[in-house]
Computed example of a mutant assay.
Amino acid sequence: MSLTSSDVQRLATLARIELDADEAARTLAQLNAVFGLIETLQAVDTTGVAPMTHARDLALRLREDQVTEPDRRADYQAVAPAVERGLYLVPRVIE
């Protein structure tokens, strides 16, 4: 697949981008190069290749969650102007 200059101008219009003739020509060449790479990748036979989530076979080392800080919620809410059921109440700013 290759684009034409009218395709690039249409894309620029849709994206609300102003391109002069030189920029349109450079963009056309770059987009056609990208489409060429995509076509090359699509031509590769991947039959029997398992999908991967990462290029390297990595495993996450998980650990148990540990509480390291004391629960000070009651202390913080004791000095708040308004609290209801554990939530801070603030003045309404949107009608």
Rank of each mutant, 00 (worst) to 15 (best):
Gln42Thr: 02
Leu62Ala: 07
Val34Gly: 00
Glu84Ala: 14
Val8Lys: 01
Tyr76Asp: 13
Ala78His: 02
Arg26Phe: 09
Ala55Gln: 09
Gln30Ile: 09
Arg73Gln: 10
Pro91Ile: 06
Val34Glu: 06
Ala82Tyr: 04
Tyr88His: 08
Met1Cys: 14
Arg92Thr: 15
Leu28Val: 13
Leu58Arg: 02
Gly86Cys: 10
Arg16Pro: 07
Glu84Trp: 14
Glu23Asn: 10
Ile94Lys: 13
Leu3Ile: 09
Gly86Phe: 04
Arg10Lys: 13
Arg26Met: 15
Leu62Ser: 10
Arg73Ala: 03
Glu64Leu: 03
Arg26Trp: 01
Gln66Lys: 11
Ala50Asp: 11
Glu69Met: 00
Leu60Thr: 07
Tyr88Ala: 02
Arg73Thr: 14
Pro91Cys: 09
Ile38Gln: 05
Pro81Thr: 15
Gln77Cys: 09
Glu39Arg: 03
Ala12Leu: 00
Asp7Arg: 03
Glu23Lys: 12
Leu60Gln: 04
Ser6Val: 10
Gln66Tyr: 00
Ile94Phe: 13
Ala43Tyr: 01
Thr27His: 02
Val67Cys: 03
Thr13Ser: 11
Leu37Gln: 11
His54Val: 00
Thr46Trp: 00
Ile38Pro: 07
Arg16Glu: 07
Leu19Phe: 05
Asp71Met: 07
Phe35Asp: 07
Glu64Gly: 00
Asp7Glu: 09
Tyr76Glu: 11
Leu19Cys: 01
Asp57Val: 06
Asn32Asp: 15
Thr4His: 04
Val8Thr: 05
Asn32Leu: 12
Val67Thr: 12
Ala80Cys: 15
Thr13His: 04
Gln42Asp: 14
Thr40Phe: 15
Leu14Phe: 15
Arg92Ser: 15
Leu11Ser: 03
Arg10Tyr: 03
Leu31His: 00
Thr46Met: 10
Val67Tyr: 03
Glu39Gln: 14
Arg16Ser: 13
Val83Arg: 01
Ala74Leu: 10
Pro51Val: 14
Thr53Leu: 14
Gln77Ser: 00
Glu23Gly: 13
Ala24Gln: 15
Glu69Ile: 05
